[in-house]
Design a protein around this nucleic acid. Sequence first.
RNA 1: GCGCCCGUAGCUCAGCCGGAUAGAGCGGCGGACUUCUAAUCCGCGGGUCGGGGGUUCGAUUCCCUCCGGGCGCGCCA
Length: 614
Amino acid sequence: MAQGRGYARPTGRSPLPPRPRRTRPRRPRPHLPRHLTDRAFVIRDHLLDALRGALVAADLPEPPGGLEIDATRQREHGDFQTNAALKLAKAVGRPPRDIAAALVSTLDEKLPRHVARLEVAGPGFVNFHLEPSWLHEVLVDVVVAGDEYGHSAALDGLRVNLEFVSANPTGPLHAGGARWAAVGDALANLLSSQGAQVHREYYVNDAGAQLDRFAESLHARFKKQKLPEDGYRGAYVLDMARRMRAELGNGLDLEQAREWGHADIMRQLHDDLGRIGVHFDTWFSERSLHERGDVDAVIARFLASGRAFETDGAVWLRTSEMGEERDRVLRRSDGTPTYLAADVAYHLDKLARGHAHLIDIWGADHQGQVRSLQLAMEMATGRSQTPEVVLGQFVTLVRHGREVRISKRTGNVITLADILDEVDADVARLTFLLQSIDTKQIFDIDVVTAQSMENPVYYVQYAHARIASIGRRAAERSLARRPLGEVDLSLLVHERELDLLRTLFAYPDVLADAAEARAPHRVTTWVRELAGRFHGFYHDCRVMLDDDPALTQSRLWLAEACRLGFANALAILGVSAPETMSRLDETDDTDDADGSPDEASDGRSHDDSGADRA
RNA sequence: GCGCCCGUAGCUCAGCCGGAUAGAGCGGCGGACUUCUAAUCCGCGGGUCGGGGGUUCGAUUCCCUCCGGGCGCGCCA
C-alpha cells in the first residue's frame, strides 16, 4: 500500500486496473494528533534503520529489491523477520546463513530498542524477537488515535466518485444487487478511511426500452390484460398494479402508469437500500442526460474531432484506431443513441462535477462494456482507465439445498426486502462482505436465516458486547480507567494479551491494503480474527481482579483498545456494534418454514436480466 | 475461437505485492459454566493447495499449458 516508506515494497502487478497512487507526499491531517499508521511503522523503521546500519558495518550492499522486514507468521520465529541475507546471497557470492550470521553479530553489539534477541534461522532468515514493550506502545497508539485508529491520509483529499448497485428501475432490488450495495458502501467507507472524499452514486437507467416494457407490463396488469411478449411477470408487478389502483383509481393510461410505476420503484429501491443502511449522495437519472442534450453533444463532439464517422445512417466510434477489433456504435441508424453514448456522457458529467477518480462496481455480466466505455472515455478525455471498473461475481441464491435461478422478467425474485424480512440488516451485510467479490457467492437462505446463531456477525458483535459489559460492571463498582500514563502496561504479558495487541498492530495495514485492493472483505476477515482472539482473552484473562488493581487497569485499557478496533472495523463494514446481545434462549426452534423458488443476480443491471439468463 | 473470474480439509471460505511445519467457521468426536453474558473457550480427526511444466535459494502465491466451472465478446440494455 501507500506506506512505502523506508523499506521498499516491490511494485507488483495488480490483477485490477491501476490504482491512484498517492502523488503528494504524506501529510498528516492536522486535526489528528498522530496516526497509528504513522507510528505503527516506527517499529519497522526502527528495525530497518538498525539493519541498514548493520549492512554498512558488515560491508554489505542493499539487497536487490530493497530491504524488507515483515511480521513473522509463526510465533517461534519471533516478531519480525528479514530475508535480506537470502536476497543478498547471489550478489555477494556467500552462503545466506553466513551473511545472516554477520548481520546478527553486528546487531548484537548494540541491540536495537525493544529487541530481546536475534537469531539466524532456516535458510538464512534473521529473526527479531522483541520484548513485549513494543506491543504496549501499540496499545498507546491505538488509544491515542481513538476513533481514527488505523485510518490514514494516503488518499487525502482525493475526490472519488463511487458508482454502485445501479440496478434497473424495473423491479425491487434483489439479492444480487444487495451484494453490491453492501460491498460498495463498505468500499466507500474504506476509501474514506484513507482520506478520500467519496461520493456514492446510483445511475438510474430510466431512459431505455426496459422501462417501456416494464410500464407496459404494469399497465397490462392494471387493466387485467395479458402481458406483452417479453413483459415482466414477477408477482411484484401485480402487487404494484393493485396499489396503483388503490392510490389512483381506475382509468389510467400507459403514460400515467409509467410515471407512477417509476416513482414507486424508486421509492422501493430507496427504502430497501435504506433498510441495510446504504444511502446515496446522488441518484443520477439517465433520462436527464438525454433531455439536457448531453448525449447528442458527446456524439457530435466525436464526429467533429473525427473520432467517429457515419455509415448507413449510424454513427460509429473509431475504437479500431485504439487497437480494437471493431468499432462501436454510438447512434443507431434509427437515430437513437446507444447505451454506450449515454454512458460516456454520464461519466464525462462525473468528471465535470469535479470527481478526480471514478470507480464503478459492476456485475460480471457487464464485463463486455468495460473496454468500450474506457476506450470511449480515453478518446474523449485522453485519460485511460477511466472509470476504474470493479467487477464482481454473481450471487447464487440457494434455498432448500437447491439453486434457484429466475430473472425479474420471467417470475419472482427473492428481493432484498424479502431477505431483510427474515434476517436482520447486520447479518445480511456481513454475509455479503464475508468473501472476495472475485468469487461467486452462494447465498443460502436457510443457512443465513435459520442458522443465524452461529453466524459470524454474532460472534463479532458478541465480542464487542462483552467489552461493553465489562464497562458496565466496572461502572457498578465505580471502577474507572486511570489516565494511561499512570497505568503499568508492562503487566500485559499473557500470550492472549499479546496476541490481541499484535492483531491491533496489523489493522492499519489491513485497512490500507483492503482499500487499495478494493477488497472490503479483508476487513471482515480481520475483525473476525480480532473477535476470536478477544474471546480467547476473555476466557483466560479475567479483567476485573479484586486483588490486583494494577493489572485490572492495564486490562481495562486493553479492552478499550479492542473496543476501538471493533467499533472502527464494524463501522467500515456498516455493521452495528451493539452494547448488549439479547440473551440466547432455547426458544428459537430453527425450522425452515417456507418455500418459494427464486434467484437473482446482477450488478449494474443496465438491463436487468436482459435476455433471461435462466 | 478470444477475454475476465474461480477451482485450497466432507461443506462454505480466508491466505495481502513468493518466504521457513497451509488457516477459520460449519459438520464429526471429546472436554470446560459458584466468578466481567458458555451466541464463549480448549483438544482430536481431516489437505497430492484441480493436473503438468517453468522462474526462484524458496511457489497455494508469479509465468506457460491442460482440465473443470461461471461470465463476457451486438445498430440489447
